[in-house]
């Protein structure tokens, strides 16, 4: 049996004004494949954060090619959202995920975007090739992993 997969793509100029349209695109696909309102909101917010990072940081040199590619891949168990830019890239190892206890105690400004992405989605990975292609891939499973473990355990019992 071959697994059915689907892919939706959007190429759009990397501009803050387009974030609403990007969220709409991502949100409607997530809705169409059956995510509830809460998960649709989470996917929209994670995508917004990833795209905002590109707009703010990847294309600070305006001479660079400034498009943003959003791809949504669907298979039987998950939605994978891939945001690709052709900007300057970054070292994902150098990103410090804030310790929220410390963050709340000191009330720092900024640095929450990547924390949000990691918290909102089930998996976040980077593939960075500076100046050529930078990708962030974010996965949301149709069945929450914790729920799936409960189902599996109850099957065993």
């Amino acid at each position: 049996m071959t697994l059915k997969t689907k892919e939706y793509k959007l190429r759009i100029p990397s501009q803050t004004d387009n974030l609403e349209l990007i969220r709409y695109f991502v949100g409607r696909v997530a809705e169409k494949v059956g995510f509830d309102d809460e998960d649709v909101g989470k996917i929209e917010l994670a995508c917004d954060e990833a795209c905002t990072n590109v707009i703010k940081h990847a294309y600070s040199d305006r001479s660079q090619h400034q498009s943003l590619d959003i791809a949504i891949k669907l298979d039987y168990q998950k939605l994978t959202l891939i945001v690709t830019d052709h900007g300057k890239g970054f070292d994902p190892q150098a990103i410090k995920i804030p310790d929220m206890k410390e963050y709340l105690a000191e009330l720092k400004v900024g640095g929450l975007g990547i924390y949000l992405m990691k918290t909102l989605m089930d998996e976040v990975t980077y593939d960075i090739k500076p100046g050529l292609r930078n990708q962030v891939s974010m996965v949301k499973y149709f069945i929450n992993k914790k729920d799936s473990m409960v189902v599996n355990n109850s099957k065993k019992a």
Partner: peptide, 16 residues
């Protein structure tokens, strides 16, 4: 309609 982490940062900056 919408708030992302930059909007949150804006509120935190005002609060502090």
């Amino acid at each position: 309609n919408w708030m992302n982490s930059s909007g949150l940062g804006m509120l935190i900056s005002g609060l502090t």
